[in-house]
Design a protein around this nucleic acid. Structure first.
Lengths: 215, 215
DNA sequence: TATAATTTTTAGGTTTGTCTAAAATTTAAT
DNA sequence: ATTAAATTTTAGACAAACCTAAAAATTATA
């Protein structure tokens, strides 16, 4: 499997994770910053290899084989992110691009040994679940902070947006995985929130609240 | 820089390490298991980028720029080998192919953090020197065991051949980096050696002795 | 020093993954 | 239910990195 094929599978997997329906050519093209015609070419190739179910003009979905392959790539990506943050002292906003490269290293033994070395983590530094060697994922039920009501209290367990900008913003506000968050006030005008993080009280926009997972 | 370009630079670097003269197209082709015509294509490209000095029909050498680039690839390869052996518990005969992939990961910060994480090692698991972040290499004078005379004693500090077969043979004979080796007898007929490794006495062929570095 | 053998390069072709532009299909709107 | 708009696919091209076969240059040999 080539890097490119792996990237397409991963993208389709991520798009499926949020939408569930069949994925459109354009959606893939946009996510991968490429052209629709390139996507079509690749879908034919992946279909030929039984990694996706593809019907012309009708969108695409992963086969069981394709889904497992995608999960293995995601597994690698997230384990490497753990390694970078926990062992090499990178911060959570710096690891994505490097993990994007490391996820393509081909060696099952390597990834399983890395898994053990890290103590078999179940979540990456952004709170996303890490598939095990068989592709099994432990899903933790979590809600977006934006869905919380006044006076509710929860623990920050993940971020939806993993962009460097968003993560740096959270660092500045001293919001990290494990932080206790209490809704003090919900502003109906702009749907912003007044929240307490630990001992500090801050105001965050709805956009921020829509990208924080709480349990 | 592409994977392929990096592999050519690395190969030219390794060939230069042993021969010192300009490197021939065929030598590169043989080492990389590719065709001479492919090598010619790439040499033109590398020359265009000022990474090699290339004159048609006259062989090739690395420019300063090319040499530094090659050293950085070797640095990555050897640091990753240390990681695999010391942290992930791979044996020294299993790491080459994986390091061959990892050496192409692009991130200076990553490799420098990995270096620190490993305690800034100066040699890889086969006793080969690791260039520092500036490309500087600490050369340790070492001789081939085959050049030793009767009754001389030394410590095994490296292997010339790093093939899995050779390394497994050494494991079987309980010869490792750090092992004390004493020449008991040198057989003039076939240039084989009777040596003492720790407390054991064994016989090794000249081919084996020609691939063990001793200090 | 001619000629033979070897090495190296050139010429032209293939595959992978991309692109643009045009054609086909589907979806939305009047 | 047509027509318009958007999406998707096809057709044809291109760059990277490889290949084979033939030509050119170098080296070895008689």
């Amino acid at each position: 499997m080539t890097f490119s094929e792996e990237n397409y599978l991963k993208t389709i997997y991520h798009l499926t994770w949020v939408s569930d329906a069949d994925i459109s050519t354009n959606a893939i093209a946009e996510k991968m910053e490429t052209k629709a015609s390139s996507v079509t070419d690749m879908l034919k190739k992946l279909s030929e290899k039984d990694l996706v179910n593809y019907v012309k003009y009708q969108g695409v979905s992963l086969t069981d084989k394709g889904k497992l392959a995608a999960k293995m790539i995601v597994r690698k990506h997230r384990l490497w992110e753990c390694f970078l943050v926990e062992k090499l002292d990178f911060s959570w906003d710096e690891v994505h691009d490097i993990a994007e490269q490391l996820e393509h290293i081909k060696s099952e033994e390597l990834i399983n040994k890395l898994d053990d070395f890290l103590g078999n983590p179940t979540e990456d530094p952004h709170g996303d679940p890490i598939p095990d060697a068989n592709g099994r994922i432990i899903k933790v039920e979590k809600q977006l902070l934006s869905e919380f009501e006044k006076n509710q209290i929860g623990i920050c367990v993940g971020v939806k947006d993993t962009s460097s900008d968003f993560l740096k913003y959270l660092d500045k506000q001293e919001i990290a995985l494990g932080s206790q968050i209490e809704i003090m006030e919900k502003e109906s005008f702009d749907s912003s929130f007044r929240i307490r993080v630990g001992t500090k009280e801050i105001t965050i926009s709805n956009k921020i609240a829509s990208n924080l997972y709480i349990k």
